[in-house]
Amino acid sequence: MALIRRAGQADIAEQLGVSVSTVSRALANETGISDAVRRDVQRVARSLGYKSKHPVDRSKLDKRALALVPLNSAIGNLASFYHGIVEGMRSQSAESGIAIDVRLVQEDMVTLDFVKKQVAKSGANAVVLAGIDPDDEMVEWSMDTGIAIVLANGSDPLMRFSSVSPANFYGAYMATKHLLDHGHRKILHYTYHHRPTIRQRRRGFEAAIADHPDAEGILVISNEHSSRELLSGLLEKKYDATAVFCWNDSVAVTMVDALLGQDSPMPENFSLIGFDDLPIATMASPRLSTIRVDREAIGRGVVRLLASQMQGEQAVQQLETGVSLVEGETVHPLI
C-alpha cells in the first residue's frame, strides 16, 4: 500500500505561485507579509491539511479582541443585560491578559466590510459579537484570516462559531414547569421568532407542555402580534389561558399592572412569568416572577473561550451558563 504523503510548504507555494520562504514567513506570522498573502497561505494550508513541524507559539502573540455590542440593546430595555456581559468580559480580560475594545454599534451596520474596518483600526485578532448573529460571509472571512469570532448571548446552530449563552432551553422548561406545578394547564407563551437563543426558549416551553398530557400550550409570536395586541386580547378573554410566559422581562413587566394590578379584570389566580431577571423585574409591583440569568458569567465565559482560541484551540465550543428560578409574586396557584 502506497503511503500518503503529507502536504508541505512547497505544495502550498506551488498552488499559490509564491516562494517557499514566503509561505514559511506567512505561516510563522512574521512581519513583511501582506494580510492578503497571509490569508491565502493560511487558507490553502488548511485545505491541504498542512501541519507545521514548528507551530507558532500563540502565547507570544498580541491578545487583542474587539467586542461589538448593539447600541439599541445597550441603551434600550436590555441595557442592564448587556452591561452585565460587558462587565464580565472586562473583569476576565484583565485576568486573561487580553486587551478588549468594546464598541457600541448599530446592529444593521454590522456587515463583513464594517467588521473588517473595525478590526483593522483596532489591530484585534479576535472578535466578540454580543447579541449579533453573523452571516455566512463572516464565517468564510474568519476561516480565511484565522481571526476568532465568539458569540456572546448567541449560538450558531451550524456550530461554526464558539458561543456562550444562558441555558435558554432549560430555563424556559423551568419557567413553564413552575406554572404547571401551580396547577396551570392552559399556558400562553409569548415569543420572538428570530434569534436561535429565543427559539431555544420556545423549545423548552414546548418540552415542558409535552411532559404533561393534560396541558395545552398556546404560542403567540411577537413578529405577528405586538405586546399591546396580546394584552388587549388577554383582557378581552380572546385567549383561553390562565398563565403567560413571556420570552423576556421587558415584555412581561409592561403587562404586570394590567393583568395583575388591583384594578385588573383578570382572575386573582392569573399568573405571569418572565425571563432574564433584569432590574425592572424587581421594580414591578407585584415583583415579577422570572428566570435569573448570570450576565457577568456569560462575559467571563466569552473571554475564556477567546483565550483558548488564541492559544490555538480549534474545536468549536458552545457553553451555557446556568439559570435559576426567582419566584417573585406573579405566579399563583390555580384553584
Rank of each mutant, 00 (worst) to 15 (best):
L235E: 09
G301Y: 11
Q318D: 03
L305R: 10
V128L: 11
M255C: 05
D57V: 00
D35M: 15
V220T: 05
Q118T: 00
M89L: 02
E14R: 11
I85Y: 10
Q317K: 13
D133W: 03
I147C: 07
Q92R: 13
S222N: 14
A215D: 11
H332A: 02
K186S: 15
H189L: 02
E216Q: 05
A99V: 13
R185P: 02
R185E: 11
R90H: 10
L180V: 05
E216A: 01
E268T: 05
T282Q: 15
I149Q: 05
I98K: 12
A167R: 00
I291V: 15
Y173S: 07
A7K: 07
V115P: 03
A26S: 05
V110P: 05
S34L: 06
E268K: 00
H54D: 15
A297H: 04
V56T: 10
D156Q: 11
S122W: 00
P267M: 00
E320H: 14
V105L: 09
N72R: 11
N168L: 01
E320I: 10
I100S: 12
I75K: 14
G84E: 01
V56Q: 07
L151N: 07
A284Q: 07
G131T: 06
S165V: 05
V105S: 06
T145A: 09
D62I: 02
R292E: 00
